[in-house]
Design a protein around this nucleic acid. Structure first.
Length: 505
RNA sequence: GCCCCCAUCGUCUAGCGGUCCAGGACGCCGCCCUUUCAAGGCGGAAACACGGGUUCGAGUCCCGUUGGGGGCACCA
């Protein structure tokens, strides 16, 4: 493509429900392409199917784009010089151009009912022929047409696909793709309810919105020859076109489903964009991750900023092959962004709503102590509560006795170790660095392994097998609460001993 | 059934005829560090789907097979 060309691309979802992760990926590629070429990124709402229309969907589309930080130049919300940007508000245009095609012998009225269409397909199937409309009204006379119309049949406009020859589509990634016209049908352009189908609306809008490049999912390849022929029928220039690879299920079987899945490790694999947000994935991690599938930054580098991606995304390094959704890599990316690309202060702000939602006290002091300690330990925002929730929980539930007992220890030695720590901690300053040495010494002096003493203390104070570093935990809990929890565990261990343990020889 | 697209480690990918006994990343395994778990460091196993061509030479080009994906709607 030439740099002087005015690049205008569009993301054109249909508002039929929550935004799908695959749609977001397509949007990102369009957006990166627009930003790289200093062009315009347009959002067009393709609401031409009244039966599938969901009013809340449009907001979810904005929300998804906003979330990952994609700014939109023209849309129903943002306005623009080429509006309206909702197809339902452009109906006259489609009707007008569909009629123009009929008048110019490029399309025709068809009166076949859906029942008749079904019969046609059934009959064709029996004969082993490919399904599809049999063009019965393609060449009828005006009288026949008038008669059919008078019967009150539904009226649609179908495109007159050339019967012979071939149509060559130039795909930016694949080069020329050749279709034999005899394998193509006469597709409906204008439905009987007066709404256009995608094929008409898409061509008319892309033309009048002066779209220069179409980047769409590769499931559209099969209808590309139709679109090319429609452009030709209108005498319009077709935008350059690139069919993007699609996301497949993590196991590589089938297109990314609409239903939430789980991987073999039990991680949920959402398919809706807002679910990723809810589960604590970071938008910039998501952006980085999605940009990496089917596109290569170069120099074996996979972690990069949006700015860097824009700098390099010229649309030439897109891999045409579909790819399985690498959920593990997303978790890794999110971890990278959690610990390397997000400051402690930013994380604290992100965790606050999670605490509120759980009804836990939002304690800034505790957050400042515990967040740096857990930053390398969690991969998503939401895991914060799993690992550090115990610090904030006032209704702390101590662990069972046997959980406390470390390697080569028993209830009695565990109780003693806890008591030792309890006593030592009494007059110790609660400072993570300052506490560690004396506590190590304490273990040594009493013939305990550091792991034995620290291990049981961790269980006593956190009731978790996996917890943040011990002394950060102590400081975050505060002296009183730490001692209280240890005391509680001492009691638990004491109760575990036989009634007359002390009198045993 | 017909048409179209795609094909490198388990996965995401680099590779655009010789510098590839195929490079990076995730995941996995091992070691180090270490109170646990992570993070981090070091190391390891792991791929050109198959068969024909073309060429002095093929992961790279062509054809076929196989496999995967999509389409053949008054859905997009």
């Amino acid at each position: 493509m030439t740099e002087s060309q005015n690049v205008r691309v569009r993301f054109a979802p249909s508002p039929t429900g929550p935004m799908h992760i695959g749609g977001l990926r397509t949007a990102i590629f369009n957006w990166l392409f627009a930003r790289h070429h200093k062009g315009a990124f347009i959002l067009r709402i393709e609401d031409t199917d009244q039966s599938r229309y969901k009013p809340e969907a449009e907001d979810l589309i904005y929300r998804a784009l906003d979330w990952v930080g994609m700014d939109v130049d023209e849309s129903p919300r943002d306005g623009g010089d080429y509006g309206p940007y909702r197809q339902s508000e452009r109906l006259e245009r489609y009707q007008q151009w569909a009629t123009w095609l009929v008048e110019n012998d490029k399309a025709y009225y068809d009166y076949t009912t859906s029942e008749e269409l079904e019969q046609i397909n059934e009959a064709k199937k029996k004969r082993g022929e490919p399904p599809g409309y049999d063009r019965r009204h393609r060449d009828i006379t005006t009288e026949e047409r008038a008669k059919l119309k008078a019967e009150g049949r539904p009226e649609v406009i179908r495109f007159k696909m050339p019967l012979t020859g071939n149509t060559e589509v130039e795909d930016m990634l694949r080069g020329k793709i050749d279709f034999d016209n005899s394998t193509l049908g006469d597709t409906v352009l204008l439905k009987s309810d007066g709404f256009p189908t995608y094929h008409l609306a898409n061509v008319v809008d892309d033309h009048f919105m002066e779209i220069s490049h179409i980047l769409r999912a590769n499931e559209w390849i099969a209808s590309a020859p139709l679109h090319k022929q429609v452009y030709a029928a209108f005498g319009w220039q077709m935008p350059q076109i690139m069919h993007l690879p699609v996301l497949l299920n993590p196991n590589g079987k089938g297109k990314m489903s609409k239903r939430e899945l789980q991987d073999d490790k039990g991680n949920v694999i959402p398919v809706l964009v807002h679910r990723y947000e809810e589960l604590g994935y970071l938008p910039n991690a998501m952006m980085n991750f999605l940009t990496n599938i089917g596109w290569t930054f170069g120099e074996d580098q996979e972690v990069f900023s949006v700015e860097e991606a824009i700098e390099r995304f010229d649309g030439t390094r897109v891999n045409p092959a579909n790819s399985a959704f690498p959920i593990d890599k997303l978790r890794w990316f999110n971890g990278i962004y959690m610990r390397e690309k997000t400051s402690v202060e930013e994380l604290i702000e992100q965790f606050k709503p999670l605490l509120e939602k759980e009804g836990l006290p939002v304690d800034d002091e505790k957050l400042r102590i515990i967040v740096p300690a857990i930053q390398t330990r969690i991969e998503t925002l939401n895991e914060f509560l799993d690992i550090a929730g115990f610090v904030f929980r006032e209704d702390f539930e101590p662990a069972a006795a046997e959980e406390h007992i470390q390697k080569k220890m028993d209830a009695e030695s565990t109780r003693r170790a806890l008591q030792l720590a309890y006593d030592a901690l009494q007059d110790m300053e609660f400072n993570a660095e300052a506490m560690e040495e004396p506590m190590r010494q304490l273990a040594k002096d009493n013939g305990l392994k550091v792991g034995q003493l620290f291990g049981t203390l961790r269980v006593a104070t956190s009731a978790q097998k996996i917890a943040p570093p011990l002394f950060d935990t102590f400081v975050a809990l505060g002296k009183d609460e730490t001692l209280r929890r240890i005391e509680q565990s001492i009691a638990i261990m004491g109760a575990e001993l036989p009634e007359n343990a002390e009198n045993q020889p």
